[in-house]
């Protein structure tokens, strides 16, 4: 998938694209400048002492002061107050990030090796593409089908692990009308670094249109083969099936339609409309010999028109 880069808002941070980003950045800069001041405060005396007390002779007079209770108390208490302050600064932003507003749009999110599936309130599903309206709080209810994953959108400053066997939630309200990137930040295996997704932020009206018709802003309905080509890329077919004949995880799509494949159980099958459909819905029923049975099912993830479109597209890949 081709993703646009993350825009930088400053030298350090990505652009702020959610309502809580500003508070988190402010906290970041507070501790940043505090650190800079403290570091300079430590290093300047260090440099000065190195210069001032550099050894001149073997019989240099050295100080015999071995302790100062006043100093010890001072440099215990002052930092203590500072770090308690930091704790509360952190706590405040974090509380906001933890408690979603009541009117939040709930999107069910499932992570698995190595893709993201988003189920919208009306039943729509998108894979590796999270579509959210601008200016409305969105709450993701997340779970994992296999191992730990983590949901991270740098521009939103939100992160939450996705844990199998339990639900975790994260919320944000996007403020910028443009695309950004979602990372998986909990190591999950070979495809960990490819487990990225696009976050599409759009106007509420465009979002509603997309929910109803599946059309992105400015998009016209596509002819089946072109829709299929798009699905090939957006539904992660391309991570396992090549177009140029090379072997990835699964058999190549080059010349796949009409080919006769050897099945793992010894039989063989001709790749036709029915086999493609079955492979999408029950992928592990007839696995091509020599390939691992790792394909996830697309049952419920593809509409009938999508399946037709994929079949139409595969006919064109020769």
């Amino acid at each position: 998938m081709r993703l646009d880069p993350i825009e930088l808002g400053s030298f350090w941070m990505p652009k702020q694209s959610s309502t809580i980003a500003q508070e988190i950045d402010t906290a970041w800069y507070i501790v940043y400048w505090l650190d800079v001041v403290m570091f300079v405060g430590l290093m300047v005396p260090l440099a000065y002492f190195m210069y001032r007390y550099k050894r001149r002779t073997a019989k240099d007079k050295v100080s015999d002061v071995t302790h100062s209770t006043t100093l010890e108390i001072t440099w215990t208490i002052i930092p203590s107050i500072m770090v308690i302050g930091l704790f509360f600064v952190g706590l405040s932003g974090w509380m906001k990030a933890m408690v979603a507003p009541g009117n939040a749009l709930e999107i069910r999110t499932t992570a698995e090796m190595y893709m993201w599936t988003f189920t919208y309130p009306n039943g729509n599903v998108s894979v590796n593409e999270l579509v959210v309206p601008k200016g409305q709080p969105v709450k993701l209810i997340m779970s994992s089908k296999d191992v730990l994953h983590s949901f991270f959108v740098p521009e939103f400053r939100v992160k939450q692990d996705v844990v199998p066997g339990t639900y975790t939630t994260v919320w944000f309200e996007a403020t910028e009308n443009r695309d950004t990137i979602l990372f998986c930040t909990e190591y999950c295996g070979v495809g960990h670094s490819d487990m990225m997704a696009r976050v599409r932020v759009m106007e509420k009206a465009d979002y509603d249109t997309w929910q109803e018709t599946g059309l992105m802003p400015g998009e016209k309905p596509l002819p089946p083969a072109e829709l299929g080509k798009k699905l090939y890329a957006t539904r992660s077919c391309n991570t396992c099936h090549s177009l140029d004949g090379s072997r990835i995880q699964g058999p190549t799509f080059k010349g796949v339609f009409g080919r006769t494949e050897q099945i793992a159980d010894g039989t063989s099958v001709k790749v036709d409309e029915n086999y493609i459909r079955e492979s999408l819905l029950e992928p592990n029923k007839k696995v091509v010999s020599g390939y691992p049975a790792v394909m996830p099912t697309y049952k419920g993830l593809l509409k009938e028109t999508d399946i037709d479109a994929l079949i139409a597209y595969l006919k064109t890949v020769q």
Partner: peptide
């Protein structure tokens, strides 16, 4: 003090009770 899962589940009866099952909610509507 975790235990949010049940609350959400009760409120959000999407067909994802068992995250490990292969089937998922249909495309058209739940």
């Amino acid at each position: 003090f975790r235990g949010e899962a049940e609350a959400i589940e009760a409120k959000n009866p999407v067909d994802l009770k068992d995250p490990f099952k292969a089937e998922r909610a249909g495309d058209v509507a739940v």
